[in-house]
Simulated scan of single mutants.
Amino acid sequence: MDDFRSRMKASGKYDVFICMGDLFDKWAVPYSVVFQASWTFFKAARDNPKTRYFILGGNHDISKDLEKKGALDLFELVVGNLPNVTIIRHAGHFTDIGGDRVGLFPYHPTKPAGELVTEKIDIAFGHWDTMFGEGNLVPTKELAAAGCEVAYTGHVHLPDEFTRDGVKVVQVGSMQ
């Protein structure tokens, strides 16, 4: 939590801050954990209104049973109404950042990752597997067809880079 607070405090140095998924380590965590994370994030976003914050739902944030509500849902109730915060679950989100068309892709428990790529984009941020992962493998063919040259994934814990189908894939590694 100390590391998280430190990173959130520093987030105002950036125009855009993207949480690449797995904000929580399970979809159901103690309320105290949700409260601490929500309050820390809320303060950072409130204190840095010019920074745009995006939070991707990760495989640990979202239950495979889409009817169940969990930590990310409670988190969204606290921070989701801030004008500079966007929480992304269940569908791709498309926006312009620094002159680039950007796609932001959460983990989806029932749809293949490639189905979420529905627009032309320059850069992609997602919560994808890179080696295996039925349905959640980084959709390089679909990204290449959408014009994307670089894709960042937050799912894989160790940093790495490789190119597949003409798309450079960057594993940013997990915060911990």
Rank of each mutant, 00 (worst) to 15 (best):
R7Y: 09
R7S: 09
R7A: 13
S11Q: 06
G12S: 07
G12W: 05
V16L: 05
F17I: 04
M20N: 00
G21P: 01
D22M: 02
D22I: 01
D22G: 02
L23P: 00
D25M: 10
D25A: 05
K26Q: 13
K26R: 15
K26V: 00
K26Y: 09
W27N: 02
W27P: 01
A28R: 13
P30A: 13
Y31E: 15
Q36P: 00
W39K: 14
W39S: 12
W39F: 14
F42C: 01
D47M: 10
D47T: 07
K50I: 02
T51S: 08
Y53T: 09
I55P: 00
I55A: 12
I55R: 03
I55T: 08
L56K: 02
G57H: 02
G57S: 08
G58Q: 04
N59I: 11
H60R: 09
H60Q: 07
D61H: 05
I62R: 09
S63C: 05
D65N: 15
E67H: 11
K68P: 00
K68S: 12
K69H: 11
K69P: 00
L72E: 05
L74F: 14
L77N: 12
L77Q: 13
V78Q: 01
N81C: 06
N81G: 10
P83K: 08
P83Q: 08
V85R: 04
T86N: 10
I87R: 08
I88E: 00
R89S: 06
H90L: 12
H90R: 12
G92W: 04
H93T: 08
H93A: 11
F94N: 07
T95A: 12
T95S: 11
D96R: 14
G98T: 10
G98M: 11
R101H: 14
P106T: 04
H108I: 07
P109I: 09
K111Q: 14
A113W: 04
A113F: 07
L116D: 05
V117L: 08
T118H: 01
I121G: 03
I121E: 08
I123P: 00
I123Q: 03
I123S: 02
G126M: 11
W128F: 15
W128N: 03
D129T: 11
M131T: 14
F132A: 13
F132V: 14
F132K: 14
F132R: 15
G133F: 10
L137I: 14
V138S: 00
P139L: 09
P139A: 10
T140H: 05
K141G: 06
E142H: 10
E142V: 03
E142T: 03
L143K: 04
A144E: 02
A144F: 06
A145K: 14
E149S: 15
